[in-house]
Every structure is written in C-alpha cells, then in structure tokens.
Amino acid sequence: MIVTVTLNPAVDEEYMVPEFHLGGWFRASSVRQLPGGKGINVSVILKQLNYDSVAMGFLAGFNGEYIRDAMRRMRISTNFVHVKGETRTNVYIVDPVGHMETGIAAMGPYISEEALSRFTINYDRMLKRASLVAIGGSLPPGVPQDYYRTLVEKAKAVGVPVFLDAAGPPLSAALEIVPTAVRIDHRFISVTLGYPIDSLDKLVERISQIHAQGVEWAITACATHDGLGNIFYTPNGIYVAEIDVDQAVSMIGAGDALMAGLIVAHEEGMDTEMTVRFAMACLWEEIAHPGHGIGGMDKVKSLVSRVRLEKLD
C-alpha cells in the first residue's frame, strides 16, 4: 500500500484570467476548485494511474470536509486527523495569454500537540501496511520544523522507501536521515544552498551534494532552451530530461505528477531510463490541461518515447 502524507492540505482555486496583471479588475474565464496539497495530488494521480493509496494528514472545517468528500468520490482511502480551524485555500491565477502563473498560499490551521500525536500514532500503524511513503508540501503552524525528519526516520526504521518533496528547513532536516528520493522545488534550491543558482552546472552541483549524502534519487526542475527540463541524479548517473511546453496550459501540480510517476515506476520496477521517461511523461500529461490530474495510463505511455533524455558525463 502506498501512503501519501499531506500535513498542510489546501483547497486549490484556479482562476483562468487572460491578460492578468497586478492592480487590475478581472473576470475569470473559468474557475476550478480542487482538493490540493502535494501528497493529495500524488494520491489523485496515482488513482488515475490505477494505483491505490492512503492519503494522510490534517483536515479542518468546511474546506477539510470538501477535501474528504472529494477524495471519497474519487475512491481514495483517507486517514486524516480532523482539527479545529479551517484547511487553507490556495489561489492560483493562470494567464493563458501571457503564459504566467501567480500563486498565493495561505498558512493553514494550527496543529496542537494532541493532534500531532494522534497523527503520529496513525502514521506508525499505517507504516506496517505501507510499501512506500510519499511526503510532500509545507508544514502547518504548530508542527515542528524537523517533523519530516521524524517521519522519514520512522519509515526507514521499518524498511519502507520514502519519497520526499519539500523545501527549506523541513527538507534540510529530513535529508540528514537520507530519504530514498527527493524532489526539490527549483524555487527553493538556492535557499538550501545559500547562493544563487544561475547555471546548470551549479544545479547539478547541488543535486550531486544531495546524492552524495546517500539519497538515491535527487530531482529538480531546470530551464532548458527548448522546453521544460528536470535533472535526475539517479543510482546510475545524472540525466537531464526535457519535454515540450508548447501545449502547456497550467504548471500547477506538475511536480506532484512527476513524483507520482516516480512512485509508479518504483512499484513497477522500471529501469532507470524508463523511470525518468515515465515520470516526465506524467508531468507532461499533467501540464497539458487546467487543474490537477492526468488522463490516465495510456496518455502517459503515449508520451514516454517523446521525452528527450541526455545522460551527463
């Protein structure tokens, strides 16, 4: 059983606003409301790839009910701890004309010690049935900055692989315990490094540092001349994978699709090159339409061979 952890879920509201700019008044051409948060997005995409998972974390208030109900309708197993307050709303403004996205993320509800303890008990129990744990996203107020480290440590203690998608101090603390795979948001990678990343070499250098710590798979996005790229430091070398972005509609959830692809590749026992291709194909399929999610396994498979791959020396 695959377990996904989203400690700070959100209701994602995506507004399509052509020619959006600051200070103006606009009418959205379309609005989508979706359950969100990295782990939840991974669970949704896994379901679309015919893989079951259990989504864990915290939910609160009306938004929490909405997420739980949406997950139920998608037939995704849930084990959330419900807390007081309100699950946050994240707002995304997508400008399909200017090809620009603006995001505003809220803080999330306060998590009490009792609620965190309840989650930890549930997590320990779920680990006994888990084949893989995927942890992602920010920490809500009240959760210690090194809590991901605790979760990674617990999973590793029982031999369960951990895929982590995080940033900042929670990521740095968890890296010390060496998760199986780590995806670092390119927007935060220079923060973890302490100096700006302005070249592919520097990006590879940082990814190499993480890999040197023992992390088998370290991934981050990179800009390429012809499309959208990701660097994969794998157990069998460094790959730069690239896809076309001509038909990209929205980048929201792109990283989560990549993580879901990596998880499926891991569960299917794909080889390194195929894993990279499959993960990138999931990302490609995700960004081809608004909102979260993909059109299914067949659509992903049709993109696999079109992913451009370069192995670095």
């Binding site: 037939r75 849930t78 084990n79 007081k84 309840r118 129990r125 779920m126």
Partner: peptide, 23 residues
C-alpha cells in the same frame, strides 16, 4: 467510505468522544 479513522484499544474515552465529534 474509504476513511480509515480508527481508535486503538488504549485510546481514552475522552479522546474517542473528541474523534467521534470532530469526524
């Protein structure tokens, strides 16, 4: 309903009441 909310044998009744109420 695929919700796996559950109690353990050692959960206190106070906590169980809170879980029933909040869920």
């Amino acid at each position: 309903d695929r919700d796996l909310t559950a109690l353990t044998e050692d959960t206190s009744l106070a906590e169980a009441i809170e879980v029933l109420s909040i869920h």
